[in-house]
Structures are given as structure tokens and as C-alpha cells.
Computed example of a mutant assay.
Amino acid sequence: MEIFVDAINHCGLREVDYVGPRFTWIYQRKDGEQIRERLDRAFATQEWMDLFPTTKLHHLSSLASDHSPLSLHLEYQQKKMKVRRMFKFEYMRLKDRRCEEIVKTEWEEEEIIATDRVLERCLERCRAELSAWNKSEFGHVGRKISELQSRFEGLERQPSSTEQIRELKNTRVELNCWLDKEDVMWRQRSRLNWFQRGDRNTSFFHAKASARQKKNLIVGLMDANDVWQEDDARMEEIVVEYYNNLFSSSNPEDFSELLAAVQLKVSLAMNEELTRVFTGMEVRLALK
């Protein structure tokens, strides 16, 4: 098994997420007991997963075999939900000196005009200005890098001249700056805090961020009757029903089983000492 795992890691394979029953193999013993295992799985490379990001492996039911049939669904029509994007500060912005200038300017101006809730108003003003600046300057890092790479390749094909050499140098510096920003961006989105610095490995961090985003995507939920539901309205009902049941009381009256599990901290001797009648001497000592 260890060699098999090493082979999977060496090939860079990832397991495809599944939908349906957990186990794919059932063995019925003569004594009536069952052995259940998940023996059947599907693996794919990261490049393949990028081509089919919503792939699901469906575990189907079988009436003839002790193995469950597997059905690989490559395409899934993901529902687009209109969700307001939350403001998240990108660490890569700190690599641009204008970021500090924007924060300082907006903070100082709001401090002058604000009369109440100064901190809240300063933060809101910085958020709005940084969002606008991010949209205009960092709207699409990948597109900016592609444009600089194309410009750099075009300059390399031109005849050598003083102007061409200077432009080539400036483009190389700008391209490296944007590559560093892209690397920082994907490191932050991948949330791998254990790897802070080192060689640029953008594809690795992009894969980790994509995997986390895919993990956070809820395609469907199993209802109380073990039926797979993918409709948004039904999923909402399942979530509401689950937490209603979780945080609702069944109004129990018999607590003996619960109390029996609580370990005693006060012994019988200690309890007798605490509940006995006070003596006159003890009262006089307490009042002195």
C-alpha cells in the first residue's frame, strides 16, 4: 500500500470527489454480518481537474454485484448565484508603494471630516478607495502578465538599439514585479501559512487555491431520507431544518442518565461537613 501511495504522489494524481453512498463494496458473511469498504476510486492529474473542475464520481446501486457501479460525470451546470463580493485585502498590494499612500491619504481626510464613528468611517473609506484602485490596477493579474510577456517577446525580435535595450530592461523589471505579485496572490489565496518564502511556484499555489474553492462549493446535500438534493431551494430547507433540530430542545424530563455520567467533585464527607448546622463558636469567630 505504501508503494501504491508513492506511485500516486509521483504521478501527481488527485482523488475525484464522489456523490452517493460512502462504500462501494459489500461482503455478506454467513453469520449475518456485513463488511463494507470503499475499494473503488477515481484519480486524475491537476491539469485534467482544471479542464473539468466540476467532475463528480457517482456511486450507483447494484442489485447483481457486490461492487457498486461508478459513473463519472464530467460536466455539471453550475448555478450562478448573485453574491456580493466581500472586500479582502490582497497582500500583493503592499508591493506597490501607492497602496500606503492611498490608505494614508484617505485615513487622514476622513479623520478631519468625520464627527462620530471615526474608526468605522476611516475603514470604510479605505475599503472603497482600495477597491477602486484594485479594479483599475490589479483587475486581472494574469492578463497583465500575458501582455508584458508578449511585449517582451516582441522587443527581443527587434533590431538591437539603445532604445530597444532600455525598453527591454524596463519590461523585464515590470514583468518580474508582476510575477512576484501573482505568486504572493496565490500564496495568500491558498492559505498555506507554513510556506512563507522561497522560490516562485505559482502553479502549486494556484492548484491549492482552486482545490480549496472547489471544496467550499456545495453542489448538493443529502436530506433526512438519504436522497441527494441539488436544487437550491431544497438545499436551503435542508440546512435550516438541520440547525433548527440541532438548536431546539426536546424538553426532556429525565436527567438521570446525564447526571450519572457527571463525575462527583464533592465527596459525601465533604457534603456532610458543608451542610451541617453552624455552632455558636463558629458564628462568633466569623463576626470578630
Rank of each mutant, 00 (worst) to 15 (best):
I102K: 01
E111R: 13
R117F: 11
E75R: 07
M81W: 09
R98S: 08
D116M: 06
T105V: 12
D116Q: 12
C99S: 02
F89D: 00
R85F: 00
T115S: 15
D96W: 00
A114C: 03
R84Q: 07
F89P: 00
F87K: 04
C99D: 01
R97G: 01
V118S: 05
R98W: 04
M92G: 00
L119S: 10
R98M: 06
K79A: 13
E106P: 12
R117V: 03
C99P: 10
Y76F: 15
E100P: 04
L94Q: 03
Y76E: 05
A114K: 06
Y91P: 14
F87M: 09
I102P: 03
R98T: 12
E111Y: 12
Q78V: 10
R84F: 09
E100Y: 14
E90F: 04
R84P: 00
E75C: 10
E75V: 07
I112G: 02
I113G: 06
F87D: 03
E111K: 15
M86N: 13
T115K: 15
L94P: 02
E110C: 02
R84V: 05
Y76K: 08
K80L: 01
E101L: 04
I113T: 12
M86L: 12
M81R: 07
F87I: 11
M92R: 00
E106K: 14
K80D: 02
E75W: 09
L94G: 00
L119D: 11
W107Q: 02
T105L: 07
Y91S: 08
